[in-house]
Design a protein around this nucleic acid. Structure first.
Length: 800
DNA sequence: ATATCAACCCTTTTT
DNA sequence: GGGTTGATAT
């Protein structure tokens, strides 16, 4: 059954492209590099190029390999291609993330790398827990060998295609480890690799490493896949790491039919091993490579594009290009100074309401983007209070919740009994009286005999496991139950087996025994998981697969992130996410929040110019998500690590050419300008007692610590409050009298006073009542609503 | 073997 | 501030 679109003449859609876009689509004879500026229609070009390959070059869809950055991007592109070439054609294209595509290939070729077909994928938590166990076993100091930093080293190596053996045999590594005071790193690395093998498990990096090794060690296998894929496309090439770069080469070096697309200005994943040099040096590796530059931005207003250009110009290392827009000039970017994280969130929300009312747009047109997930909380609180619909991406993803991980662990152990991390997770969940001591004994015997924990409990006597009769009984019971599940793994459908496991393992009993609010939420999650499995099975069935087993489901979810599982268009909500996860997305109105030194750019990168440039690119990505309105906000104070912290505006704000910016300042910020600092009597004393001093840089005036006690300040610096329609309404309050307070407990605060609060910002006192310690003020804050505060505790300062 | 409480780290970003 | 981990008591 052919789709109507199949018959659409190629010329017709080619006409809708600008010249470089069209050339990029049509050039299919050799290697090409497409530098695609933000919003330049990159995805459209890729989509039509694939359609073009099928329609005009008669390539079989299954001979096209298209690698994307996220599963979601792959899914969306597939849908769009299906609209052009038809569902049946689109379905067989090899399209997905590096990890999902090569996982598929590794499962097919598992014998060549000595893994079983059902090997497990360890997520980061599993990897950490394994490292921790190894460090403990080796009796190393757990403070020096933190799982995160150990794993960081291991990951870096694998991304560079360095195996544990190679690492250990290179004296340079051993020496540098000694210098880092971590001489056992090489040994931990080796143990880690062995244990993963023992468990028949791979971590994320292993998927790429073993793919490379497979192609490297088995030339016939490489040739088979290299000749199968007649054309290779890679999206977001600026975010590939060395191993990915090498795998692309392994598959494309014979025919050189490869097209990579990316934007060096949007390279933001070097922390994950991404190497911007891959894209910068692409032309050197592929001789005769054609270069196409997509420089017209169709997404954003001229002001947004030019502001972003002026920002990214401050970076040195980049491919020359001039991104331009022929859209409306648009309004300037709004930079809004706020007093606290709370005020920042209120300013954002007020603007959302205002714009929505003025333009009649939808909630889904708004996005709040931040540097770190922790920043979402304040916005979440405010949005909930205002009853506005929102969706937070990232943070604790669905699959990272305890109850879900427990269930997945059962699935994993069912499919692969050697999976050590899954084993440890569920051996005593639900509680069945097998405690830490017993598990340690099992683990010791497993290590001693070089086998898996599972094998030890299958043959306890053989492996010399000395435990009490009653404990042994419990272990045997567990072993028999899991064996039964395992036997069904290759016969029962994923959904049936999953339900079976939930019932017979005692998980359902455990989760449904109480009805506290937390229990209810766990129950909901479990139901959602079951629904997810059902949906997965149904969609696979629709695609024509006959049998869907648990391993198929596991393979899919182990590489799934929160952004991927987004059900997208049907929910009309304000989007909250990190800038990283916003890559590739666009919104009518974007709020980039938390533009403060130490937060964005992160304090982690200070003193490292290369990483500082990456932070700047991150900001570039954030701004270029906006189509019409772009707001940049910062807060002078915010809660971090349970403490109030004060910071100055990010240096990135001054990187943007001021002609594209409309700056709004609150009165409070004027009090806190650099020149005023020294004139304030308490400034010096407080700064010296600042608990975590940051390195001083020319961009960064020394942080100002505000007094903890309420201290009335009569300001006479003649600053007028700024009035604006951007969430900082003009003061309608009458000026307070300068006369001495009649009641000392009131510190001069009376109805009509304008006051400042550390967290709520500026407000007008409506009423003061009560006596002595019990004196309360009802205050209407400009951006935080009305509050009644005890003057004894409230950190208020009077301003006139 | 489990429950409770203190101590600790944390916050960069994710396939 | 909060979530997780480890020590201690029951």
């Amino acid at each position: 059954m052919e789709e109507i679109h199949d018959k659409m003449p190629m010329d017709e859609y080619l006409e809708s492209f600008n010249p470089p876009q069209r050339e990029a689509v049509e050039f299919c004879d050799g290697p090409s590099l497409v530098i695609a500026g933000a919003g330049s229609g990159k995805t459209r070009v890729l989509t039509y190029k694939i359609a073009h390959l099928i329609n005009q070059h008669d390539l079989e869809p299954w001979s096209i390999l298209a690698l994307t950055f996220t599963n979601k991007a792959a899914g969306e592109m597939k849908e769009r291609i299906a609209k052009i070439v038809g569902e049946n054609m689109a379905r067989t294209i090899w399209m997905g993330t590096f990890h999902s595509i090569f996982l598929r290939i590794l499962r097919i070729e598992h014998e060549h790398i000595s893994f079983s077909q059902n090997f497990t994928i360890y997520d980061t938590a599993d990897s950490k827990s394994l490292v921790k166990a190894i460090v403990k076993e080796m009796e190393l100091d757990e403070k020096t060998y933190k799982p995160s930093s150990v794993l960081d080293t291991i990951s870096r190596c694998k991304n560079q295609l360095v195996t544990a053996e190679e690492y250990a045999s290179n004296p340079a590594n051993v020496q540098s480890d000694a210098r880092r005071n971590m001489p056992a790193l090489a040994q931990i690395f080796q143990r880690y690799s062995n244990r993963c093998r023992q468990s028949d498990a791979m971590d994320f990096d292993d998927i790429l490493l073993y793919t490379f090794l497979l192609f490297d060690k088995c030339p016939d296998v490489r040739e088979r896949w290299a000749s199968r894929f007649k054309y290779i496309l890679v999206d977001e090439y600026q975010d590939t790491n060395f191993s990915q770069h090498q795998i692309v080469w392994q598959l494309s070096k014979d025919h050189q039919k490869v097209c990579v697309v990316g934007d060096d200005a949007q390279s933001i994943y070097s922390f994950r091993g991404a190497n911007i040099d891959n894209i910068l040096s692409f032309q050197d590796r592929y001789k005769g490579c054609k270069l196409f530059k997509l420089e017209q931005n169709y997404r954003s207003t001229q002001n947004i594009v030019q502001a972003a250009n002026s920002l990214i110009e401050k970076n040195r290392k980049q491919i020359q290009k001039k991104v331009f827009s022929e859209n409306d000039k648009g309004e300037k970017l709004h930079v809004i100074d706020t007093h606290s994280d709370i005020e920042e969130s209120n300013v954002v929300i007020n603007n959302i309401k205002r714009i929505k009312k003025a333009e009649g747009c939808e909630y889904r047109d708004f996005a709040i983007l931040y540097r770190t997930n922790a920043q979402s909380r304040v916005f979440e609180d405010s949005l909930r209070k205002e009853a506005l619909p929102y969706r937070i991406y990232g943070g604790l993803s669905f699959y990272q919740r305890k109850e879900i991980k427990d269930i997945i662990a059962y699935f994993r152990l069912t499919v692969n009994p050697n999976d050590e991390e899954a084993f440890r997770r569920i051996i005593n969940y639900p509680a069945r009286g097998i405690g830490q001591t017993t598990v340690n004994k099992i683990a010791t015997q497993a290590n001693l005999n070089g086998t898996s924990l599972w094998n030890v409990i299958c043959f306890p006597e053989q492996y010399g496991l000395s435990i009490s009769k009653s404990t042994l009984g419990k272990i045997v019971q567990f072993q028999e139950m899991m064996s039964k599940f395992s036997e069904e793994a290759s016969t029962k459908s994923a959904l049936d087996l999953a339900k079976d496991i939930l019932h017979n393992s005692g998980i359902l009993n455990d989760i449904y025994k109480d009805a506290t609010p937390e229990d209810l939420s766990r129950q909901e999650n479990v139901e959602e998981l079951v629904n997810g499995i059902q949906e997965f099975c149904e969609s696979r069935t629709e695609e024509g697969n006959e049998h869907i087993y648990l391993i198929d489901y596991l393979s899919e979810v182990s590489l799934m992130s929160d952004v991927d599982s987004d059900n997208g268009d049907d929910d009309n909500k304000i989007t909250l996410m990190t800038i990283h996860s916003a890559k590739g997305l666009e919104f009518d109105t974007v709020f980039v929040v938390g533009l403060e030194e130490g937060l964005f750019p992160s304090q982690m990168v200070s003193g490292n110019p290369r990483e500082m440039e990456e932070e700047r690119r991150l900001f570039y990505v954030a701004i270029t998500r906006a189509k019409t309105h772009c707001f940049i906000t910062y807060a002078q104070s915010r809660f971090r690590y349970g403490q109030m912290e004060f910071s100055s505006p990010s240096r990135f704000i001054t990187d943007i050419d001021p002609q594209f910016i409309d700056r709004k300042q609150t009165l409070y910020s004027s009090l806190n300008t650099r020149n005023d600092d020294v004139s304030l009597p308490w400034a010096k004393k407080r700064t010296s007692s600042f608990t975590s001093p940051r390195p001083f840089t020319p961009f960064q005036p020394e942080p100002l610590r505000r007094p903890a006690s309420s201290m009335p300040i009569s300001s006479s610096n003649g600053l007028s409050s700024s009035s604006s329609s951007y969430g900082i309404p003009a003061s309608s309050a009458p000026t307070a009298s300068q006369s001495a307070p009649s009641n000392p407990s009131r510190n001069g605060i009376s109805a009509g006073s304008t006051v400042l609060h550390d967290r709520f910002g500026r407000g007008t006192v409506l009423k003061v009542e009560g006596q002595g310690d019990n004196t309360k003020a009802r205050i209407k804050f400009d951006n935080s609503g009305e509050k009644i505060l005890l003057l004894k505790f409230a950190k208020l300062r009077l301003i006139n």
